[in-house]
Design a protein around this nucleic acid. Sequence first.
DNA 1: GTTGAGCGTT
Length: 253
Amino acid sequence: MSRFGRSGPPPIRDTYSLLVLNITFRTTADDLFPLFDKYGEVVDIYIPRDRRTGDSRGFAFVRYKYEDEAQKAVDRLDGRLVDGREMMVQFAKYGPNAERIQKGRIMETVPKPRGRSRSRSPRRGYRDDHRGRDSRRRSRSRSGDRYGRDRYRERDHHRRSRSRSASPDDYKRRGRDSPSRSRSRSYSPDDDRKGGRDSLSPARRSTSRSPLKTPPPRKTPPPREGSPARRNDDRSPVGRNDDRSPGSRSPST
DNA sequence: GTTGAGCGTT
């Protein structure tokens, strides 16, 4: 998908994955390809995207054919201004070449770029020194993202629950997720809703929930009905007029 | 229309 004309990385024998960070959310593989291709042979470029929105996540993976080229690109493109933003280039942690990195072969080149790439922001170093890399998480700082993911899970959960009343698979899954939640919270609205509904009398809960769940969502009558009504109203005067018309009364009188 | 410090396949 993010490749530039190819489908899948099957032809890749041993490539070095570079992680490009700090790139704009609008940067595409095509934009990075010429930049990286200039310093070495780029085998493939992949930009993870959000599955919900489909937008770029702000980083990309560039696969080089040779390590020296990759290192050169890291040294050259790291801190390069792209689309008005400095992108950071570093070796990816995971990938087909991850094993080599663990061997310590590339290790010599890993810590190097870090020292010179501090030009972006001193806070990073401070934070990095304080918390370390363990603190980093996959979740983006994007506000609402966490909610979105949580909501997504809830949706899935509900979908399953609704789809199947009770399934061993569900129970198993729930049990696995349960510890995570139970530790965080003794009770969960989801469970309460599902369990409480069948267990305790719904009337009581319904009453307490009524005020909250009974907002005046009812809006004014639909315009469709208004249309005929208006016509009726319009016709009304005619009828009245007709009814009132002297001709009607005339015969009577 | 936004954000941010982040490691991956549609």
